[in-house]
């Protein structure tokens, strides 16, 4: 008997239907694995947040460094000696 190659192969295949319950179970299991995998769980949201905020934060930090160094440097902090402190305390009576 002659039969078509396609017919022969198709007769060998499992049905092309998947029970909805099996798909539901697979989706549930996949979500559970997402929860377990810490790197994956925080992956997209974390990376998206990094991509969104990392550049502005780095730019702000660099700007602060430039301003702090060259534009508005703080005067050297006044050295308060122990003697001056004790004498001022004596003068005010405390």
């Amino acid at each position: 008997m002659t039969q078509d190659l396609d017919a022969f192969v198709h007769a060998a295949l499992t049905p092309g239907k998947i029970a909805p319950r099996r798909l539901d179970a697979l989706i549930g299991a996949t979500l559970a694995r997402l929860d377990r995998r810490q790197e994956v769980a925080m992956g997209p949201a974390f990376r998206a947040a990094c991509a969104r905020f990392a550049l502005p934060m780095a730019a702000a930090a660099a700007l602060g460094l430039v301003v702090g160094t060259y534009v508005a440097p703080n005067p050297p902090a006044e050295q308060v000696g122990l003697l001056a402190l004790s004498s001022s305390t004596a003068m005010t009576g405390f």
Partner: peptide, 21 residues
Amino acid sequence: AGGDRRAFQRLMARHGKAMMV
């Protein structure tokens, strides 16, 4: 990409069966 699990579920429900077959 924004961490939406519901979107993930929907995408998997849409394409999962064909991939399993």
